[in-house]
Nucleic acid binder design. Sequence first.
DNA 1: ATACGCTTGTTGAGCTTTCAATCATCGGCG
DNA 2: CGCCGATGATTGAAAGCTCAACAAGCGTAT
Lengths: 154, 154
Amino acid sequence: MTRWLNEDEQRTWRAFLHASRALWDTLDRELQRDAGMPHAYYEILVRLSEAPERKLRMSDLAEATSSSRSRLSHAVARLEEHGWVSREDCPTDRRGQLAVLTDQGFQVLADAAHGHVEGVRTHLFDQLTPEQVVQLRQISEAMLDHLDPGRALY
Amino acid sequence: MTRWLNEDEQRTWRAFLHASRALWDTLDRELQRDAGMPHAYYEILVRLSEAPERKLRMSDLAEATSSSRSRLSHAVARLEEHGWVSREDCPTDRRGQLAVLTDQGFQVLADAAHGHVEGVRTHLFDQLTPEQVVQLRQISEAMLDHLDPGRALY
DNA sequence: ATACGCTTGTTGAGCTTTCAATCATCGGCG
DNA sequence: CGCCGATGATTGAAAGCTCAACAAGCGTAT
Protein backbone atom coordinates (compact mmCIF):
# COMPACT_ATOMS: atom_id res chain seq x y z
CA MET A 1 0.00 0.00 0.00
CA THR A 2 1.59 3.22 -1.14
CA ARG A 3 2.00 6.07 1.31
CA TRP A 4 1.12 8.90 -1.08
CA LEU A 5 2.21 12.46 -0.47
CA ASN A 6 -0.40 14.77 0.94
CA GLU A 7 -0.96 18.25 -0.44
CA ASP A 8 1.64 19.84 1.82
CA GLU A 9 4.29 17.25 1.18
CA GLN A 10 3.63 17.48 -2.52
CA ARG A 11 4.25 21.22 -2.48
CA THR A 12 7.37 20.85 -0.38
CA TRP A 13 8.74 18.22 -2.68
CA ARG A 14 8.09 20.24 -5.80
CA ALA A 15 9.50 23.39 -4.27
CA PHE A 16 12.64 21.50 -3.38
CA LEU A 17 12.88 19.97 -6.83
CA HIS A 18 12.56 23.28 -8.60
CA ALA A 19 14.75 25.20 -6.22
CA SER A 20 17.65 22.82 -6.17
CA ARG A 21 17.52 22.41 -9.91
CA ALA A 22 17.34 26.16 -10.44
CA LEU A 23 20.30 26.73 -8.15
CA TRP A 24 22.26 24.00 -9.79
CA ASP A 25 21.52 25.16 -13.31
CA THR A 26 22.36 28.74 -12.48
CA LEU A 27 25.71 27.96 -10.91
CA ASP A 28 26.54 25.52 -13.65
CA ARG A 29 25.78 28.02 -16.35
CA GLU A 30 27.76 30.75 -14.62
CA LEU A 31 30.75 28.48 -14.28
CA GLN A 32 30.51 27.36 -17.86
CA ARG A 33 30.35 30.94 -19.02
CA ASP A 34 33.10 32.34 -16.79
CA ALA A 35 35.48 29.42 -16.51
CA GLY A 36 34.59 27.20 -19.44
CA MET A 37 33.85 24.13 -17.35
CA PRO A 38 30.86 22.45 -15.73
CA HIS A 39 30.50 22.37 -11.99
CA ALA A 40 31.53 18.73 -11.77
CA TYR A 41 34.92 19.58 -13.24
CA TYR A 42 35.32 22.58 -11.00
CA GLU A 43 34.78 20.36 -8.00
CA ILE A 44 37.50 18.01 -9.14
CA LEU A 45 39.96 20.89 -9.33
CA VAL A 46 38.88 22.12 -5.89
CA ARG A 47 39.48 18.77 -4.26
CA LEU A 48 42.85 18.38 -5.90
CA SER A 49 43.88 21.86 -4.83
CA GLU A 50 43.19 20.94 -1.21
CA ALA A 51 45.06 17.67 -1.28
CA PRO A 52 48.68 17.28 -0.15
CA GLU A 53 50.94 17.95 -3.15
CA ARG A 54 47.73 18.63 -5.06
CA LYS A 55 47.39 14.98 -5.97
CA LEU A 56 44.87 12.29 -5.17
CA ARG A 57 44.21 8.69 -6.07
CA MET A 58 41.45 8.38 -8.62
CA SER A 59 39.26 6.39 -6.27
CA ASP A 60 39.65 8.90 -3.44
CA LEU A 61 38.90 11.71 -5.82
CA ALA A 62 35.83 9.88 -7.04
CA GLU A 63 34.56 9.53 -3.51
CA ALA A 64 35.31 13.14 -2.63
CA THR A 65 33.35 14.40 -5.60
CA SER A 66 30.58 11.81 -5.23
CA SER A 67 31.29 10.63 -8.70
CA SER A 68 31.43 7.19 -10.25
CA ARG A 69 34.85 5.94 -11.23
CA SER A 70 33.84 5.87 -14.82
CA ARG A 71 32.65 9.45 -14.75
CA LEU A 72 35.84 10.55 -13.09
CA SER A 73 37.99 8.73 -15.62
CA HIS A 74 36.26 10.50 -18.46
CA ALA A 75 36.40 13.83 -16.67
CA VAL A 76 40.09 13.60 -15.82
CA ALA A 77 40.83 12.61 -19.40
CA ARG A 78 39.22 15.81 -20.53
CA LEU A 79 40.86 17.94 -17.85
CA GLU A 80 44.15 16.45 -18.97
CA GLU A 81 43.49 17.55 -22.54
CA HIS A 82 43.04 21.07 -21.22
CA GLY A 83 46.34 20.82 -19.40
CA TRP A 84 44.71 21.41 -16.02
CA VAL A 85 45.41 17.97 -14.58
CA SER A 86 48.01 15.32 -15.29
CA ARG A 87 48.30 11.68 -14.29
CA GLU A 88 51.00 9.85 -12.43
CA ASP A 89 51.44 6.23 -11.49
CA CYS A 90 50.82 5.47 -7.86
CA PRO A 91 54.12 4.46 -6.22
CA THR A 92 52.59 1.99 -3.74
CA ASP A 93 50.00 0.26 -5.89
CA ARG A 94 50.66 -0.48 -9.49
CA ARG A 95 46.94 -0.45 -10.27
CA GLY A 96 46.59 3.07 -8.98
CA GLN A 97 46.69 6.37 -10.74
CA LEU A 98 47.17 9.80 -9.20
CA ALA A 99 45.49 12.84 -10.62
CA VAL A 100 47.67 15.91 -10.15
CA LEU A 101 46.58 19.51 -10.45
CA THR A 102 48.96 21.39 -12.77
CA ASP A 103 50.05 24.97 -12.18
CA GLN A 104 47.91 26.01 -15.06
CA GLY A 105 44.98 24.14 -13.56
CA PHE A 106 45.55 25.86 -10.26
CA GLN A 107 45.53 29.22 -11.97
CA VAL A 108 42.32 28.48 -13.84
CA LEU A 109 40.74 27.40 -10.57
CA ALA A 110 41.91 30.49 -8.75
CA ASP A 111 40.41 32.66 -11.47
CA ALA A 112 37.13 30.78 -11.44
CA ALA A 113 36.76 30.64 -7.67
CA HIS A 114 36.01 34.30 -7.09
CA GLY A 115 33.01 34.36 -9.37
CA HIS A 116 31.73 31.01 -8.24
CA VAL A 117 31.85 31.79 -4.54
CA GLU A 118 30.10 35.04 -5.26
CA GLY A 119 27.43 33.05 -7.07
CA VAL A 120 26.95 30.64 -4.18
CA ARG A 121 26.59 33.58 -1.86
CA THR A 122 24.25 35.56 -4.06
CA HIS A 123 22.02 32.68 -5.01
CA LEU A 124 21.98 30.79 -1.73
CA PHE A 125 23.34 32.30 1.47
CA ASP A 126 22.13 35.83 0.81
CA GLN A 127 18.61 34.51 0.36
CA LEU A 128 18.47 32.71 3.70
CA THR A 129 18.33 33.89 7.29
CA PRO A 130 21.12 32.69 9.57
CA GLU A 131 18.65 30.28 11.16
CA GLN A 132 17.75 28.88 7.78
CA VAL A 133 21.40 28.32 6.98
CA VAL A 134 21.72 26.22 10.12
CA GLN A 135 18.52 24.38 9.27
CA LEU A 136 19.71 23.67 5.76
CA ARG A 137 22.86 22.12 7.08
CA GLN A 138 20.98 19.93 9.54
CA ILE A 139 18.54 18.84 6.87
CA SER A 140 21.36 18.03 4.46
CA GLU A 141 23.20 16.06 7.10
CA ALA A 142 20.09 14.08 7.95
CA MET A 143 19.72 13.19 4.29
CA LEU A 144 23.36 12.20 4.07
CA ASP A 145 23.21 10.03 7.17
CA HIS A 146 20.59 8.01 5.40
CA LEU A 147 21.84 8.02 1.82
CA ASP A 148 25.57 7.80 2.35
CA PRO A 149 26.15 6.86 5.98
CA GLY A 150 29.85 6.07 5.98
CA ARG A 151 31.12 9.10 4.16
CA ALA A 152 34.01 11.32 5.19
CA LEU A 153 32.66 14.49 6.70
CA TYR A 154 34.90 16.91 4.87
CA MET B 1 36.71 41.84 -3.28
CA THR B 2 35.39 38.34 -2.89
CA ARG B 3 33.23 37.45 0.08
CA TRP B 4 34.68 33.99 0.75
CA LEU B 5 32.80 31.33 2.64
CA ASN B 6 33.76 30.82 6.24
CA GLU B 7 34.29 27.37 7.72
CA ASP B 8 30.65 26.94 8.67
CA GLU B 9 29.28 28.11 5.37
CA GLN B 10 31.72 25.88 3.57
CA ARG B 11 30.49 22.85 5.47
CA THR B 12 26.88 23.77 4.91
CA TRP B 13 27.45 24.23 1.22
CA ARG B 14 29.24 20.92 0.84
CA ALA B 15 26.65 19.08 2.87
CA PHE B 16 23.96 20.50 0.66
CA LEU B 17 25.88 19.62 -2.49
CA HIS B 18 26.45 16.04 -1.47
CA ALA B 19 23.01 15.51 -0.05
CA SER B 20 21.03 16.86 -2.95
CA ARG B 21 23.20 15.02 -5.42
CA ALA B 22 22.90 11.79 -3.45
CA LEU B 23 19.14 12.12 -3.27
CA TRP B 24 18.91 12.93 -6.91
CA ASP B 25 21.14 10.08 -8.01
CA THR B 26 19.32 7.59 -5.84
CA LEU B 27 15.87 8.49 -7.09
CA ASP B 28 17.09 8.65 -10.65
CA ARG B 29 18.66 5.23 -10.44
CA GLU B 30 15.58 3.73 -8.82
CA LEU B 31 13.37 5.15 -11.51
CA GLN B 32 15.67 3.97 -14.26
CA ARG B 33 15.72 0.50 -12.78
CA ASP B 34 11.99 0.19 -12.03
CA ALA B 35 10.42 2.19 -14.82
CA GLY B 36 13.11 2.39 -17.46
CA MET B 37 13.21 6.16 -17.58
CA PRO B 38 15.17 8.98 -16.01
CA HIS B 39 13.51 11.32 -13.55
CA ALA B 40 13.26 14.11 -16.10
CA TYR B 41 11.05 11.94 -18.27
CA TYR B 42 8.96 10.84 -15.34
CA GLU B 43 8.29 14.45 -14.53
CA ILE B 44 7.08 15.11 -18.04
CA LEU B 45 4.59 12.28 -17.75
CA VAL B 46 3.44 13.52 -14.35
CA ARG B 47 2.74 17.02 -15.62
CA LEU B 48 0.88 15.72 -18.62
CA SER B 49 -1.20 13.41 -16.47
CA GLU B 50 -2.36 16.40 -14.41
CA ALA B 51 -3.25 18.60 -17.36
CA PRO B 52 -6.77 18.87 -18.80
CA GLU B 53 -7.18 16.16 -21.43
CA ARG B 54 -3.67 15.09 -20.51
CA LYS B 55 -2.20 17.50 -23.02
CA LEU B 56 0.01 20.57 -22.79
CA ARG B 57 1.73 22.98 -25.11
CA MET B 58 5.41 22.24 -25.42
CA SER B 59 6.39 25.60 -23.98
CA ASP B 60 4.10 25.21 -20.96
CA LEU B 61 5.41 21.73 -20.40
CA ALA B 62 8.96 23.03 -20.61
CA GLU B 63 8.22 25.63 -17.97
CA ALA B 64 6.42 23.17 -15.70
CA THR B 65 9.37 20.80 -15.77
CA SER B 66 11.98 23.59 -15.63
CA SER B 67 13.43 22.32 -18.84
CA SER B 68 14.77 24.11 -21.87
CA ARG B 69 12.70 23.88 -25.01
CA SER B 70 15.43 22.00 -26.74
CA ARG B 71 15.69 19.44 -24.00
CA LEU B 72 11.96 18.97 -23.98
CA SER B 73 11.84 18.51 -27.74
CA HIS B 74 14.41 15.75 -27.56
CA ALA B 75 12.75 14.17 -24.56
CA VAL B 76 9.28 14.16 -26.09
CA ALA B 77 10.71 12.70 -29.28
CA ARG B 78 12.05 9.82 -27.27
CA LEU B 79 8.87 9.41 -25.23
CA GLU B 80 7.00 9.31 -28.50
CA GLU B 81 9.21 6.46 -29.70
CA HIS B 82 8.21 4.56 -26.59
CA GLY B 83 4.56 5.21 -27.36
CA TRP B 84 4.05 7.03 -24.08
CA VAL B 85 3.38 10.45 -25.56
CA SER B 86 2.10 11.65 -28.91
CA ARG B 87 2.05 15.05 -30.56
CA GLU B 88 -0.82 17.10 -31.90
CA ASP B 89 -0.96 20.41 -33.67
CA CYS B 90 -2.20 23.25 -31.55
CA PRO B 91 -5.60 24.40 -32.85
CA THR B 92 -5.14 28.08 -31.94
CA ASP B 93 -1.53 28.67 -32.94
CA ARG B 94 -0.05 27.03 -35.96
CA ARG B 95 3.43 27.24 -34.47
CA GLY B 96 2.35 25.29 -31.44
CA GLN B 97 2.54 21.63 -30.64
CA LEU B 98 0.71 19.73 -27.94
CA ALA B 99 2.24 16.81 -26.16
CA VAL B 100 -0.41 14.26 -25.22
CA LEU B 101 -0.06 11.44 -22.72
CA THR B 102 -1.18 8.17 -24.30
CA ASP B 103 -3.09 5.50 -22.41
CA GLN B 104 0.00 3.39 -22.45
CA GLY B 105 2.01 6.31 -21.09
CA PHE B 106 -0.53 6.77 -18.33
CA GLN B 107 -0.26 3.13 -17.41
CA VAL B 108 3.52 3.22 -17.32
CA LEU B 109 3.33 6.28 -15.11
CA ALA B 110 0.81 4.69 -12.79
CA ASP B 111 3.05 1.67 -12.40
CA ALA B 112 6.12 3.81 -11.76
CA ALA B 113 4.47 6.20 -9.34
CA HIS B 114 4.11 3.80 -6.43
CA GLY B 115 7.75 2.99 -6.21
CA HIS B 116 8.88 6.52 -6.82
CA VAL B 117 6.68 8.06 -4.14
CA GLU B 118 7.89 5.41 -1.76
CA GLY B 119 11.43 6.44 -2.64
CA VAL B 120 10.77 10.10 -2.01
CA ARG B 121 9.31 9.21 1.34
CA THR B 122 12.02 6.82 2.36
CA HIS B 123 14.92 8.96 1.26
CA LEU B 124 13.59 12.37 2.19
CA PHE B 125 10.49 12.79 4.34
CA ASP B 126 11.16 9.86 6.61
CA GLN B 127 14.58 11.30 7.42
CA LEU B 128 13.27 14.70 8.53
CA THR B 129 11.27 15.89 11.50
CA PRO B 130 7.96 17.63 10.76
CA GLU B 131 9.64 20.94 11.62
CA GLN B 132 12.43 20.24 9.18
CA VAL B 133 9.92 19.52 6.44
CA VAL B 134 8.40 22.95 7.01
CA GLN B 135 11.85 24.51 7.05
CA LEU B 136 12.86 22.79 3.86
CA ARG B 137 9.84 24.19 2.12
CA GLN B 138 10.54 27.71 3.33
CA ILE B 139 14.17 27.48 2.33
CA SER B 140 13.25 26.16 -1.10
CA GLU B 141 10.72 28.92 -1.60
CA ALA B 142 13.23 31.57 -0.60
CA MET B 143 15.62 30.21 -3.18
CA LEU B 144 12.91 30.14 -5.81
CA ASP B 145 11.83 33.70 -5.09
CA HIS B 146 15.30 34.77 -5.98
CA LEU B 147 16.16 32.43 -8.84
CA ASP B 148 12.84 32.18 -10.61
CA PRO B 149 10.62 34.96 -9.25
CA GLY B 150 7.70 34.83 -11.65
CA ARG B 151 7.05 31.14 -11.65
CA ALA B 152 3.71 29.43 -11.25
CA LEU B 153 3.37 28.06 -7.73
CA TYR B 154 1.95 24.70 -8.67
C1' DA C 1 53.94 -21.03 -6.42
C1' DT C 2 49.15 -20.88 -8.13
C1' DA C 3 44.61 -19.99 -7.98
C1' DC C 4 40.95 -17.29 -6.40
C1' DG C 5 38.18 -13.41 -5.58
C1' DC C 6 38.34 -8.47 -4.92
C1' DT C 7 39.73 -3.74 -6.06
C1' DT C 8 41.39 -0.18 -9.34
C1' DG C 9 40.90 2.16 -13.27
C1' DT C 10 39.78 2.53 -18.21
C1' DT C 11 37.03 1.96 -22.32
C1' DG C 12 33.21 2.17 -25.73
C1' DA C 13 28.51 2.36 -26.76
C1' DG C 14 24.32 4.44 -26.08
C1' DC C 15 21.61 8.00 -24.08
C1' DT C 16 20.67 12.74 -22.34
C1' DT C 17 21.74 17.54 -22.21
C1' DT C 18 23.51 21.87 -24.06
C1' DC C 19 24.26 25.28 -27.36
C1' DA C 20 23.71 27.66 -31.48
C1' DA C 21 21.44 27.79 -35.75
C1' DT C 22 17.22 27.36 -38.20
C1' DC C 23 12.44 27.67 -39.80
C1' DA C 24 7.72 28.93 -39.46
C1' DT C 25 4.33 31.65 -37.51
C1' DC C 26 2.37 35.39 -34.81
C1' DG C 27 1.13 40.11 -33.79
C1' DG C 28 1.62 44.81 -34.23
C1' DC C 29 2.57 48.95 -36.91
C1' DG C 30 3.31 51.90 -40.81
C1' DC D 1 -1.66 44.77 -47.01
C1' DG D 2 3.39 43.91 -46.13
C1' DC D 3 7.18 44.31 -43.05
C1' DC D 4 9.63 42.93 -38.83
C1' DG D 5 10.88 41.83 -34.36
C1' DA D 6 9.44 38.36 -31.11
C1' DT D 7 7.89 33.70 -30.10
C1' DG D 8 7.36 28.45 -30.62
C1' DA D 9 9.49 24.50 -31.69
C1' DT D 10 12.91 21.57 -33.84
C1' DT D 11 17.54 20.08 -35.32
C1' DG D 12 22.44 18.50 -35.32
C1' DA D 13 26.73 18.52 -33.27
C1' DA D 14 29.49 18.45 -29.32
C1' DA D 15 29.88 17.39 -24.56
C1' DG D 16 28.83 14.78 -20.44
C1' DC D 17 26.96 10.74 -18.03
C1' DT D 18 25.74 5.78 -17.32
C1' DC D 19 26.28 1.14 -17.72
C1' DA D 20 28.46 -3.06 -18.60
C1' DA D 21 32.58 -5.20 -19.92
C1' DC D 22 37.29 -5.46 -19.42
C1' DA D 23 42.35 -5.66 -18.05
C1' DA D 24 45.62 -5.51 -14.64
C1' DG D 25 47.28 -5.87 -10.03
C1' DC D 26 46.44 -6.92 -5.23
C1' DG D 27 46.07 -10.28 -1.18
C1' DT D 28 45.01 -14.43 0.75
C1' DA D 29 44.50 -19.35 1.10
C1' DT D 30 45.85 -23.53 -0.37
